[in-house]
Design a protein around this nucleic acid. Structure first.
Lengths: 216, 216
DNA sequence: CTGAATATACCACGAACGTGCGATTGATTA
DNA sequence: TAATCAATCGCACGTTCGTGGTATATTCAG
């Protein structure tokens, strides 16, 4: 059966042009196109749900970002592909967190957009080249932090885990069969190495710098 | 100038086959191919550095994952494209964190691999369809957590920030011009809402559940 | 108008924490 | 062999925290 596509895009020229392209492509059709999320929500109440929604972000009324979840509440399995001019980190990040299945930029060719519709239904995640690069950069940022060990010993790392877990010094001592004083000493040493002075700060630093994972 | 490509792949048939394809492609060449990272490191010491390294993960000796950073230490600007059969979450995640510029699976067509080499040099991030999907799923997981606000008020969120930053109650009071007692009360309420009993636990929960960002 | 929620403020007490000392043992390394 | 480091244990003091109360002003929805 042909792919049912909806489109939400306030630029009528761009919208009409792309709708025409889709309707001239075998295997897919777009009979619903809107200039605002609100109109599309009304249609979701009465029409058969689409397979894919091509969604702009810079819209009058509700933004595409907020619209993602709303569309998903109507049709949990719908694939939402963002099609926008925005490529700043925050917008991309927010859209992906909201559950977009793909992210294209409007400078994409019409062929690329049509291909992406097929790709998302095949279980893929069409991403513009520059968007994919941004996404990967987010990962490598995580790594940088994970390298700084602060020279914690094994025992100290172990105790660090329990601090993060929220145990008191006495509870930690009981857990690993040490005296309260020993735990106290270890924690003092952890403070020196991490250059902090409270448990809350240790937890904060531990998360910010990914002081977990045994390896390295 | 043509693209200089190296390859690290222990399956000699696959390696030779792909090297041949690359060398038959105008604009790129592969004159160095290895069956282990260690061999490639030796070559990095004496040969001109490549533009792109196609790197397997399941290798004898050092794994491709650990190899990524090592290659980057020789040539910080080299683009490393993973080419492997592994597509489990941990492997993908680790590779991207280490700084891979792309991630392909070995069932990719040779055309796709050649295209990806060009794409990565054009500033893109070639990802296999299924890998891209995994990556996007990681983002939507973040979102789920961010929804659970625990009904914190604006004031409480504000104070939460300072707790995470490691300030004492008195310091927080001074910072936002409130009495110590008021801050104390707010923190008590935060504890009730988050169901914790210590500052360390608050910090832990705040990080684990992304209790940041004002939006929603 | 009337609760409910929010923000503000105060007090007191015991528990937990942070810190400055000192000390012994065993393993590793220079 | 001497020195360093990790791990263990100990005490004392002042500070901060967590928790049980109580109370007032404001705002906002029912």
């Amino acid at each position: 059966m042909p792919i049912n596509i909806w489109m939400v895009e306030d630029n009528s020229r761009y919208r009409k042009s792309l709708v025409a392209v889709i309707n001239n492509t075998p295997g897919m059709y777009c009979d619903q196109a809107f200039s605002a999320c609100e109109e599309a929500f009304d249609a979701m109440e009465v029409e058969a749900h689409p397979d894919v929604i091509l969604l702009d972000i810079g819209l009058p009324g509700m933004s595409g970002i907020k619209g993602i979840q709303k569309f998903k509440s109507y049709a949990p399995d719908v694939h939402i592909v963002i099609l926008t001019i925005y490529e700043d980190n925050d917008t991309v990040f927010d859209a992906l967190c909201e559950g977009a299945s793909g992210y294209l930029l409007k400078d994409s060719t019409q062929d690329k957009i049509v291909d992406s519709i097929r790709e998302v239904l095949a279980g893929g995640a069409p991403l513009n080249m520059r968007i994919a690069q941004k996404v990967l950069q987010l990962f490598s940022k995580i790594k940088i932090k994970r390298d700084t060990n602060y020279g914690l010993t094994e025992r100290e790392k172990e105790i660090l885990q329990y601090i993060v877990a929220g145990l008191t010094k006495q509870q930690i001592a009981d857990k690993i069969f040490l005296s309260f004083h020993t735990v106290n000493t270890h924690i003092k040493n952890i403070y020196k190495k991490l250059q902090v002075t409270t448990k809350a700060a240790v937890v904060s630093k531990a998360f910010n710098e990914n002081l977990f994972k045994a390896g390295n």
